[in-house]
Amino acid sequence: MLIRDYIRASSLEEASERYAAGGYILFAGGTDLMVKARGKKWYQDKTFLDISGLQELKEIREEENFLCVGAAVTLTELEENREVRERLPLLYEAVRSVGSTQIRNRATLAGNLANACPASDCIPALVTLGAQVEVYGGKGKRVIPAEQIFRECRACLRHSGMHVRTCYYSDPTEKKLILEPGEMICGIRIPFPKPGTGHWFYKLTQNRTIGMAVMNLSMTVEPDERGKARRIRLSAGGIFPRPVCLETVRGKNAGKSLREACLEQAVNAIEQEKDLLADYPYKRRVFPELIEEGLEALLPDGEEDS
C-alpha cells in the first residue's frame, strides 16, 4: 500500500480543517480505499484521515421522524440496530446485502454513499426512502437530499465489472458528489416511511454471495388512507450514471394503471442509457422483470385501476 501518511482525526473540527487544507483523503471503513491503495499509486502524496474513531460520528439516534446515522457507523451496527430492522426494512435488507461480514464490520453507510459507486446497494435504498445527507464544512452544516448530492458519472457505466479495483476515481467524493471543497459527510438522515408502506429489495449478482451487484432494485409502495397503493418509488443500481428515484402516483398516469405506468417509466429511463451502459441488451431485458417481481409482491391483487 502506497500512501504518504495515515492519521486519526481527534475531532470533527480538526478533520474538517485538515480536509479543507488539501492533501487528505477521508477514511472511515477503508474497504474501498485500501483496495485502491494496494493497486494504484494515486495516494502516494495523500494522507488517509481516519474519522472512524470520532464518537460524535458513531451515533444512531432518532430525531423527529428521522433516524440519524453518523458517518462512522458501520453497516454491521446498522444491521444490529432494532429501529433499522423494524422501521427501515428496505435499508436493513440493502445493508445486509453488502459484501461479507468482514466488510460490513468495517464499511460505513456514509462511506458507501461517498464512494458513489453506481452499483452501490445502499444508495438506491437511501434515495428511495428520501434520505438526506448532513454535510459539515467551511460554511457550517447543511443538509442535502440524497438524490441531489450526486454528479453524473458516465465513465462508471462503461465497464461491466464495476469492481473497486477498476474504479476510475482516487477520490470519488470529489468527482462524483456536489460537495464544496472541504465539506465532509457527517451523517445521513433517513425518514421512517409511512405506516403500511411495503418495500422490496433485490440484488442481482453473479454468484449469489459477496459480489458487487450487476443490478439492484429498491422499491417502496405507499398506501393511501384506505390501504390502496398510492405511490411507488423505486431506484436501481448498476443502470444509471447518477442515482435517480422514479416515482409513480396513482391517478396521474393518463388512464394507465399504477403498475403499467411504473413499468413504462422504468423502461423509458433505462432506454435513455442505451449508448452508455455496458451489457445494455441484458439489463434492458432484466430491469422490467425485476420491477415486475417486486410489484407482484407489493401490489394486492386487482390493483389495476388507474
Binding site: R38, S100, Q102, R106, I210
Partner: peptide, 23 residues
C-alpha cells in the same frame, strides 16, 4: 489482498475483519 477471500480474517475488537483492508 482486496477483501474478497477472507484468508486474512482476524478479530478486531470482537469483530471479524479482513487484515488486508485495515491499516
Amino acid at each position: 489482498g482486496i477483501g474478497s477471500c477472507g484468508a486474512c480474517t482476524v478479530i478486531l475488537d470482537g469483530k471479524a475483519v479482513n487484515a488486508c483492508l485495515v491499516p
